[in-house]
Design a protein around this nucleic acid. Structure first.
Length: 544
DNA sequence: TCCGGAGTTGAGTAT
DNA sequence: CATACTCAACTCCGG
């Protein structure tokens, strides 16, 4: 390896981790570099409007998240420019991000490539392509884990090769997270020559072709590191609130002033470092006498995030039911009509529909609101596959995160982690206890805004004269309920009971052979690990 | 192998 | 109005 000289060219490739603070990849790239190339590759699949999609946005992301990403990139560029650098925006080659990075590595004679490690399956495949190319070209590669508090592979190793499957066992094994990089820079090495490359400016959503949505309600969350740090400081200023924070006690109907920090989108894109956030919360804790603890506390939420990252990293086929060892096999029903009603906020249950409309417009809703609609779609009312709901959330949430989204759908559908399927959220009474007047519903479903308080959660029970007076005829201006909650939830409980009984039969078939290692019969072959490092880790797991 | 306790976030009712 | 209890009940884990 050549010694670092003034001529050394380093590239920091941004994907998540769209920040300057606590960024080990950027920190490593700048050290000893004569030229620094901060790169982000625009992916048309992520950004290009898809007219065939169910709601405004691209094939991969709703327009709220597209906007959030663009704002984050603009802010990153501005912050880099303040340090004498800039963001080099490239276009993917034939819709392939990895190819664009490889080409730039070669054309700019890069000596060292740094990027934040990403444990999601699609990212692992993309990054392997780039890493293989770099290695073959003699380019040094540095890919630190800095998206999560801990290194998922290390936790799995410490746990004997298998991911801890309960929060408490995760906590017991994790310990304290590493300290963030707290050093602040006054300048970065100059950007090197980019030759013939066309460097793009950060486009606006309008420039990308989303012009027709300008009349829409714009989500109240701006992307970017600057906004992330401002928002975090604002939340942490209220020390009493931080010290008393208990996640399950939050109000899911609060939308003017949400009951949580709404820092999840910033953590998702890495505008905010989870380690820095953790560190700052600890500072607040040190200044108060008493404070809540995991799992309900603020730090507890960051640990939940790491929990799901770790389990997802160590569980083959984590994002599906089939071939997923930790997922209950449940015969979900197919019903496109009911699914579409749920997706589009037309179930006839105002509480459910308001949440789905907030999702489509804002790309964010409170955690308990997500619980409500996820339960309704799956084990509570419609008995539709959690993977269908997962896909909707995955596209529309501005904070959608592969590990956490899948983990929570597994949880809510009682497919894994949580099994008390008799506990069903009521689409009527759950929201009502927080917001008896239905202000949340009135905001997101304007057609119901004049429905009297006593009918707002069940407008189909309002006498026709009242419906007329409220200018909202049920069945015409707003749909009738697609199912009756009483009968539907009863049926769901029954079917869950049957699925559980059948899975007990599968896992304990009245002792076959003690040497038989297979715990559960799989109709779809074996669980070939989607990434080999996990497969190796799993092989070391002890047998009993 | 069996038993008891724990598990971030249910609903309904009583105090 | 916040808290506590009941209801009916799941799996997982550790002893």
């Amino acid at each position: 390896m050549e010694a670092a000289t003034a001529a050394t060219a380093a590239m920091v490739w941004f994907r998540k981790g769209l920040r300057v603070h606590d960024n080990p990849a950027l920190d490593a790239a700048r050290r000893g570099a004569g030229r620094l190339y901060p790169v982000f590759v625009l992916d048309p699949l992520y950004l290009r409007p898809d007219p065939a999609a169910a709601s405004p946005g691209s094939a991969r992301a709703g327009v709220a998240r597209v906007r959030f990403l663009l704002e984050s990139l603009g802010d990153l560029d501005a912050r880099l420019r303040r340090l004498g650098s800039r963001l080099l925006l490239l276009r993917a080659r034939d819709d392939d991000v990895a190819d664009a990075v490889c080409a730039a590595l070669k054309d700019w004679n890069i000596d060292k490539l740094c990027f934040e490690s990403d444990t999601e399956p699609y990212a692992l495949a993309r990054d392997k392509k780039v890493t293989d190319f770099a290695m073959a070209s003699g380019i040094e590669v540095f890919a630190p884990v800095s998206h999560t508090l801990f290194v998922p592979a290390e936790i799995i190793n410490k746990n004997g090769g298998r991911p801890p499957l309960t929060y408490q066992s995760f906590i017991a094994i994790a310990g304290e997270p590493p300290e963030p990089v707290l050093e602040e820079y006054s300048e970065l090495p100059p950007v090197g020559d980019t030759g013939e490359y066309e460097l793009l400016l950060v486009p606006t959503v309008e420039e990308l072709g989303y012009g027709d949505i300008s009349q829409e309600e714009i989500p109240p969350f701006r992307g970017g590191e600057t906004e992330a740090l401002r928002r975090m400081k604002e939340s942490l200023q209220d020390k009493e609130w931080v010290a008393k924070f208990e996640k399950p006690k939050g109000d899911p109907s609060a939308f003017l002033k949400p009951a949580t920090t709404v820092l999840s989108p910033y953590l998702k894109f890495g505008c905010l470092s989870s380690r820095y956030f953790y560190h700052c919360i600890q500072d607040v804790y040190r200044s108060v006498r008493k404070y809540t603890k995991p799992p309900v506390s603020l730090t507890g939420q960051l640990l939940w995030r790491d929990f799901f990252y770790t389990v997802s990293f160590g569980t083959p086929n984590f994002d599906q039911m089939k071939g997923n060892k930790i997922c209950k096999q449940i015969p979900w029903s197919e019903n496109e009509e009911l699914f579409v009603a749920w997706r589009d906020g037309r179930t006839g249950y105002p509480w459910i529909d308001a949440i789905m409309i907030q999702l489509r417009k804002w790309g964010w809703m409170h955690h308990l609101a997500r619980h409500s609609v996820a339960c309704f779609l799956t084990r509570g009312d419609l008995f539709i596959h959690w993977e269908k709901g997962r896909d909707v959330f995955d596209r529309l949430l501005i904070d959608s995160d592969w590990a956490i989204n899948n983990g929570n759908w597994l949880w809510l559908s009682c497919s894994s982690f949580f099994y008390q399927y008799h506990r069903i959220y009521s689409p009527v009474t759950f929201g009502k206890k927080y917001d008896p007047n239905g202000n949340y519903i009135r905001h997101f479903i304007p057609v119901l805004k004049d429905m009297p308080r006593e009918y707002i959660y069940e407008p189909w029970t309002a006498p026709l004269s009242i419906q007329k007076k409220a200018k909202c005829i049920i069945g015409k201006d707003y749909p009738k309920p697609v199912v009756d909650h009483e009968t539907a939830s009863k049926e769901c409980r029954k079917r869950m009971g049957e699925a559980y009984a059948s899975s007990r039969l599968d896992s304990n078939p009245s002792k076959v052979k003690p040497s038989n290692l297979s715990r559960r019969k799989m109709s779809h072959g074996d669980q070939d690990a989607s990434n080999s490092s996990v497969a190796k880790l799993l092989k070391t797991s002890r047998s009993e």
